[in-house]
Structures are given as structure tokens and as C-alpha cells.
């Protein structure tokens, strides 16, 4: 059990260090604006005394470590946390649902490809996956909107809103954004999963299983998918940043309230302070997500527990 503990402590430490680094860089960027912030806020005609008093009020004359602590402290104040939390939930919902669906679909496609190795269907799926991969996610989202919302009128044209809709309607609204994110993610995942499954299919114990007379499906399920789970977990954990890239675009296209769209609004309004906080939250979510993946990996790989 100590191997597991050592592994996890190392990973947690890395997450903490990464977040520290991200927060420092974000703080440096946000406060690196040339010129005095107080001067900017008061305008050109402000008297030096007014600039000085505002500077003192905002704490801009403190040494930067103090400013950094104050900036962080503002982030964890209850009102800020509540607001940021309200934004994080829709994004997490989108990520969670789309991630789970993409995982199942990608595993299914990859298993199918591994079974039909070398056939035309295998190559066809591979080409289709690649073409899907090259299409920008916002473009796919707009296409889906056009077909299903404008043309067929089957689905609503916006994503779930913060309030004011029934549960059923919430799910209905979630379909298109989730579908877009799934399409954007499945392409790369199925290719990587396929490589992992094929690797597992080449091992000796699979050869034994086949020699025993197990059907190909049984071999796949009982002997190949388990060891393939390790690279699968790694891939999923490492995909979080890319998924966030797409989430920003998707939240914008489907007019959803979430971390991504809020970041976009902050950027449009040149509100770099707000943008800085949002980036920190996104970095935290990403880091925690990869930590979760590492935990799953450690649990799935017995070698870590008993080393």
C-alpha cells in the first residue's frame, strides 16, 4: 500500500506546484500592465494626490508578494467562490457527460477496428476519424445546429441555461453541445485506443487465450481491454486541456453559461482581472482532473501498489 501512497503524494505535489506556477504566471501577466493601474483608472487629468491615494487604497504600492497573496485571497472570498462555482458547474457537466460518452464510443470503435484489423472497414473508420479530427469544433457545432435546430427543428438552438427549464428540457438542450464535444474528442481517442488495444492483442497471454479456444470477442473483453485500460486512462487524463480548448468554442456557439463563455466575455471586454481568475479556475479543474486520472491509473495498475 505504501507504493500507492508514495505515487499519490508525488502526483499531488506536482499538482500543487503546477497550480502555484500557473497562479504566479497569471498574476504576473495581469499585473504586468505597463503604467500605473490607478492612473489608468482615474484618467489623465487626475491629480497626483488622487492617484497616490487610490494606489494605496488598491494596495498597489505593496511589495508584489503581498499583492499576490491579496489577489489569491480575493479569489477565495465567499462571494467570488459562489459566482465562480456557479460558472464551473455547467462546464463540468458538459465535460463529464461528453467525456463519458466519448470514452464509451471511442472504446467501442477502437475495439471494432482492432477486431477488423487491416480490412477496408478498419481503414474507412480510420480515415473518417481523421477527417473528423481536422474539422474545427465550432464548425461542427454550427453544422449540427443548422441541421438539427434550424432545418429539422428537432432540437433547441441553445445549450442549457442556468435556470428556468424542466429537467427534460435541460437534457434536450444538452444533446447538441455534448454531441459536438464528443465528435471533437472521439476522433483522436479512437485512434489512440486502437493502438493500445492492438498492442495488448499482440501479447503472449492473448496468444494463449486464443490457443485455448476463446472467441475473438472473449479474448478482447477478458484479456486485451484490461491492460489497454492503462494507456486509455493516461490518454483521457492528458486530453483535458484539449477538451477545454473545444469547450470554450462550444459554450460560445451554443450560448451556454460556463467557464469558457465567461472567459470569452472577459476577453472581449478586456477585463483581464476577471480573465485571470477564470484561467486559474480552469487550470485547477484541469489539474484536478489529471490527478483523478492518475489516481485511477494507480488503482488499475497493481504494480504501483506493491512496488
Amino acid at each position: 500500500m505504501s507504493g500507492l501512497l508514495r505515487f499519490l503524494t508525488g502526483r499531488v505535489l506536482q499538482v500543487v506546484l503546477t497550480l502555484l506556477g500557473v497562479s504566479l504566471v497569471t498574476f504576473a501577466l495581469v499585473h504586468a500592465m505597463p503604467g500605473n493601474l490607478a492612473q489608468e483608472m482615474l484618467g489623465r487629468e487626475a491629480t497626483p494626490e488622487r492617484v497616490r491615494s487610490l494606489t494605496r487604497l488598491l494596495g498597489l504600492d505593496q511589495p508584489w508578494p503581498v499583492q499576490y497573496i491579496r489577489w489569491l485571497a480575493l479569489l477565495v472570498s465567499p462571494s467570488d467562490l459562489r459566482g465562480l462555482g456557479a460558472l464551473t458547474v455547467p462546464t463540468l457537466e458538459l465535460l463529464g457527460i461528453a467525456g463519458s460518452v466519448a470514452l464509451v464510443v471511442a472504446l467501442g470503435v477502437a475495439s471494432l477496428q482492432a477486431r477488423l484489423r487491416g480490412s477496408r472497414l478498419d481503414r474507412g473508420i480510420g480515415i473518417a476519424a481523421y477527417v473528423l479530427y481536422t474539422l474545427p469544433s465550432f464548425w461542427v457545432g454550427l453544422m449540427l445546429l443548422w441541421w438539427f435546430a434550424d432545418w429539422l427543428l428537432w432540437l433547441p438552438a441553445t445549450g442549457p441555461q442556468p435556470a428556468g427549464q424542466s429537467v427534460a428540457h435541460w437534457w434536450l438542450r444538452m444533446i447538441l453541445p455534448v454531441l459536438t464535444l464528443v465528435l471533437a474528442t472521439v476522433a483522436s481517442w479512437s485512434t489512440l485506443f486502437r493502438a493500445a488495444i492492438e498492442e495488448a492483442l499482440r501479447s503472449d497471454y492473448v496468444r494463449t487465450a486464443r490457443a485455448k479456444g476463446l472467441s475473438e470477442g472473449q479474448v478482447l473483453r477478458r484479456h486485451a481491454l484490461r491492460p489497454a485500460a492503462l494507456p486509455v486512462i493516461t490518454v483521457v487524463g492528458m486530453s483535458l486541456p484539449t477538451m477545454f480548448n473545444n469547450v470554450v468554442a462550444i459554450e460560445l456557439v451554443f450560448a451556454m453559461a460556463g467557464l469558457g463563455s465567461s472567459l470569452v466575455s472577459a476577453v472581449w471586454g478586456l477585463q483581464y482581472g476577471m480573465a485571470g481568475y477564470l484561467v486559474l479556475v480552469i487550470a485547477a479543474v484541469t489539474a484536478l482532473g489529471s490527478l483523478l486520472a492518475d489516481l485511477l491509473y494507480a488503482l488499475a495498475d497493481p504494480r504501483i501498489q506493491f512496488s
Binding site: 501577466l29 486541456p241 470554450v248 472567459l263 472577459a266 480573465a275 487550470a283 484541469t286 489539474a287
Partner: peptide
């Protein structure tokens, strides 16, 4: 490798947006 692992967790679009909000 530690440096790479740290930077790996940064979504590119998010970083670009942050910098854009400051520098245009």
C-alpha cells in the same frame, strides 16, 4: 520532464485568451 508536465496542463486557447485580454 517536470517542466513539460507542468506546461502540458495548460489549454492553449485559454492561455491565448488570457494574453489577448491584456495585450489585445
Amino acid at each position: 520532464m517536470r517542466l513539460a508536465d507542468g506546461v502540458l496542463g495548460v489549454p492553449q486557447v485559454v492561455a491565448i485568451l488570457l494574453v489577448e485580454s491584456i495585450f489585445g
